[in-house]
């Protein structure tokens, strides 16, 4: 039940870990990604990324600016232009 999550900025690879769920601020609305999500690609608006490490745990939020998210068989990759 783990989702492989990667957060990358132009300067470095910020996160690469197994998490439960991530809520991404998409351009057309927020969406959450769990393990086994269908292949998906979306641009991101400026907002906060919420990372749920465990099912019941509290969310960790990371404010990000610009970029896009890609979900494929290997997991979720968020390419953010900037961490603010």
């Amino acid at each position: 039940m783990a989702l492989h999550f990667e957060l990358v900025t132009p300067e470095r690879l910020v996160r690469s870990e197994e998490v439960h769920m991530v809520v991404v601020p998409g351009t057309d609305g927020d969406f959450s990604v769990l393990e086994g999500h269908a292949p998906f690609m979306s641009t991101i608006r400026d907002g906060a990324l919420s990372i749920y490490r465990t099912k019941d745990g509290a969310a960790e939020t990371l404010p990000i600016r610009g970029g896009f998210a890609e979900v494929n068989a290997t997991g979720l990759t968020v390419l953010a232009e900037q961490l603010s």
Binding site: T27, A38, F40, M41, S42, T43, G67, F68, N72
Partner: peptide, 24 residues
């Protein structure tokens, strides 16, 4: 290969990614 869903459309994503690609 996989059926990928795009949001917004593929064209719009590409339009946003291309300038970013130049920057990168």
């Amino acid at each position: 290969d996989a059926v990928v869903e795009y949001e917004p459309s593929e064209e719009e994503i590409l339009d946003e990614l291309l300038p970013r690609n130049v920057t990168v």
